[in-house]
Design a binder for these strands. Structure first.
Lengths: 351, 351
DNA sequence: ATAATTATTGGAAGCACTTCCAATAAAGTA
DNA sequence: TACTTTATTGGAAGTGCTTCCAATAATTAT
C-alpha cells in the first residue's frame, strides 16, 4: 500500500539489502549508488515502517513511563525533562498514568509496558512499590529505572528528602524559632518518613528538643495524606494547643498541605509569618503565587538524568545498579519572614 | 529467545495457524484443542509480541497525543480522561509534549506520530494550527482529531469559549455591576478572541455599553498572554484610570492572569470583591485554593469523548467530520461576593 | 453405506524491515 | 598479465505474528 524499500530498490535498480544499507548509513556502499538510492527514497517520500524496523531489530525505540497523575506539577516538569532528552535520542514515550495508588492498575500497566515488543524499558515514578515487586520484576527482560522512589535492586534517581526537611527546619531555627512544629503526611509514605527524619535531625543537632506535641502526622490514606484537607485538619489540631504551647513556626511536609494549614490559620484569624511561620515542601506552582517559603526539587533535571540512566542500562544490561540522589534547595519567600542574611543553603549540609 | 506461537504450536502438537486462532478467539476451533493450546500458552507464560502483531495486522493499537506542556492542569485532566477510556479499549498512548508554541517541534512531532506504523491516529491539543496545516495533513493516512482547537476539515472537540465568557460576564451583571471591564490575553489566540466576543455580547445584550477604556488585551507573546505577568501589567494599566472611571468588576480571560491581576490589586491595597470583583477562567487547581470565581471546563469528559471520536474515525475513515462543543460552567466562589440566589447557569443560554 | 456438507486444521505467504553470506566487480600486487 | 585482496552488491533467511487456501476429519442427509 505505502512505499517500502522494495519500491525503492526496484526504482533505483538495486537490491533491498543495498537500500537498507544506505538508509542506515552502513559503510561499504559506493557513493553513486548511495546517492541514487537516497534520491529515489526522497522522491517517493519514503518513511520507514516503525514496527517492521522494531521487529527486525528487536528494538522498539520507545520507553514507557508509569506516573501517578496526582503528582501533578512534579509529573509535568519531570516529563518535560524526559521528553527533551529523549527526543535527541530518537526515542518515543509511552505514557501510563496511574489514578491514585491503585495497585491493580499499577500491575496491569507494568505488565503491559514490559510486554515483549512494546517498549525497551520502563520508568516508574513516585510509586510506593508493592512488597513482591523486586522478586517479580527483577529478572524481567526490561530495564526498570525508578524515579523519586527507591529499591535497592533497581537503578534509581531520587531526591534527598531528609536533607530537604533538614534545610527547611534549619531555616526556621536560624530565624530564631525555638518551638518548631511539623505537620506531616501519612507516615506510610517513604518521603513522609524521610522528611520527618530530617526535621528531627535538624532539631536535635541544633540543640532543640523534639516535642511530640508539636508533631502532627496524618492518618488520611488519600494521596498518602499529601492533601489540602490533611493539612487543614492537622493545623486545626495544632491550634488546639493552649496558646503558650503553640509552635511559633511549622514545617509542613508538602505545599498542598501548607495550603490547607494556611487556610486553617486564616479561619483562626492567624497570619503567616506574623503568628506562625510556615515552610512547605515541593515548590509547586502555587507556592510562588502565594509567596510560600518552601523546598524546591530539580524536577526537570531529574527527568533528563533518568533518561540518561535508562539509556545506559539499555546499552549495558549487566552493569551494576546505581542510585543517584539530588539535593533539594530552600526557596525563601514570605511565609517565614524574609531575612536574607540568615538564609541557609542546603548545599552546605551533608546528610 | 522468548516464547513464540511456534513454541506453543510444537508443544501442543498443532499448527501455528491454530494457535493464532485460539489466541484471537476465532471460531472454528474445537474446544479440546482450544483448551490444550490455552493451557500450553499459560504454562509457557506466553506474551504476544506487540510489534509483530502490529506488523501483521497493520495496526499499532496506540494513539499519539501532541500536547503543549504549558497547558498544565488542563493537560493533566484531559489526559486522565483519555487514558481511562483508552485502557478499556486496549490502546496505548504515545505522548509528544510541546514546549511553548514551537512550530518546528510541532512539525517534527506531527511527522513522527504520523509515521507509518507508529500510531493509528493522532490527537492534537490546544494548538494554534499553522496555516498550511490542513493542506498538508488532510490526506495523510492518519486520522487526526483536534481537542480544544478547531479546523473545519478535522474532527474536533472544543469548549464554547464565547458561552463561558458570556456566563462570566452575565454573572457580574446579575450581581448589579455596571462598569465591567475585561482583561484579555493576546488576541492572536482564538480562545482569547472568543472570550472577548462572549464578554462583549453579554454587555450589549443586557443593555450595557462596551467601553474601550475598560478593555485591556495583552501584547505579550509568551503563552499567548495567558500568564501571571500579563495579568499583572494589564491590571496595573487598568488601575491607572481615574478613580471614578475604574471598573467595579473585571472578567479576566484566565485564572493565571487573574492571579497576576489580584496581586496587582494587592499592591494597590485593593481587595476582591470589596473593591473590584473578579471572575477568572479555566478553574485551575489554584482557583479553588484562593476562592476565585471562575469558569470550569469539563476536561475529563473532553478527554473521554475525544478518544471515542478517535475510535469512530479509526473504524470509519470516510465518515463525515464532526465537531462537538462542550458548554463550560460558572463556578461561584468568593472573588465576586457570593450571592447564591443570583447565580446564573450558562446552560440557560444558547449562543 | 455413500454422497454431500460442514467443521477443523496445517502451513505457506505476507507484513516491512535487517543482516548475513555468497557472488561479483574493482582495485592492488607481483 | 595473472593472482590476491578488498569493496560492493543481491538476495535469502529471519523477526513473530495473521490470514487465506487447500486438505482432512467429522457430520448430516439420502
Amino acid at each position: 500500500m505505502s512505499v517500502t524499500i522494495y519500491d525503492i530498490a526496484k526504482q533505483a535498480g538495486v537490491g533491498v539489502g543495498t537500500v537498507s544499507r544506505v538508509l542506515n548509513n552502513h559503510p561499504n556502499v559506493s557513493v553513486k549508488t548511495r546517492e541514487r538510492v537516497l534520491k529515489v527514497a526522497h522522491d517517493l517520500n519514503y518513511q520507514p515502517h516503525a514496527f517492521a524496523q522494531g521487529l527486525a531489530r528487536n528494538k522498539t525505540n520507545t520507553i514507557a513511563a508509569i506516573i501517578p497523575f496526582f503528582t501533578n506539577y512534579f509529573f509535568l516538569e519531570v516529563l518535560q525533562g524526559i521528553q527533551d532528552k529523549i527526543l535527541t535520542l530518537g526515542y518515543d514515550i509511552m505514557l501510563y498514568g496511574l489514578n491514585e495508588n491503585d495497585p491493580e492498575q499499577f500491575e496491569s500497566h507494568l505488565l503491559r509496558s514490559t510486554q515483549k515488543g512494546r517498549a525497551d524499558g520502563v520508568m516508574l515514578f513516585s510509586l510506593r512499590l508493592p512488597d513482591d515487586f523486586a522478586e517479580k520484576y527483577k529478572h524481567v527482560n526490561h530495564p526498570i529505572v525508578l524515579v523519586d522512589c527507591f529499591h535497592q535492586d533497581f537503578d534509581s534517581i531520587t531526591v534527598d528528602n531528609k536533607a530537604g526537611a533538614y534545610a527547611a527546619t534549619k531555616h526556621l531555627i536560624s530565624l530564631g524559632h525555638e518551638r518548631i512544629g511539623m505537620i506531616n503526611a501519612n507516615p506510610i509514605s517513604p518521603p513522609a518518613q524521610h522528611r520527618f527524619e530530617g526535621y528531627k535531625a535538624a532539631l536535635i543537632e541544633n540543640g532543640l528538643p523534639f516535642d511530640e506535641k508539636l508533631y502532627k502526622s496524618s492518618k488520611i490514606m488519600k494521596y498518602d495524606g499529601f492533601s489540602r484537607e490533611a493539612g487543614y485538619v492537622s493545623m486545626i489540631a495544632m491550634l488546639d494547643l493552649p496558646m503558650d504551647e503553640r509552635p511559633t513556626a511549622i514545617f509542613v511536609s508538602s505545599d498542598v498541605q501548607a495550603m490547607g494549614a494556611l487556610s486553617a490559620m486564616r479561619d483562626h484569624n492567624l497570619k503567616a509569618p506574623d503568628d506562625i511561620a510556615i515552610v512547605g515542601y515541593d515548590d509547586i506552582e502555587l507556592a510562588q503565587h502565594i509567596g510560600l517559603t518552601t523546598i524546591g526539587q530539580p524536577m526537570y533535571e531529574m527527568g533528563v538524568l533518568s533518561v540518561g540512566r535508562m539509556l545506559d542500562r539499555l546499552t549495558n544490561r549487566n552493569g551494576s545498579v546505581t542510585h543517584t540522589s539530588f539535593t533539594p534547595k530552600l526557596i525563601i519567600r514570605e511565609t517565614c519572614g524574609y531575612r536574607k542574611t540568615e538564609a541557609v543553603s542546603v548545599t552546605n549540609h551533608q546528610v
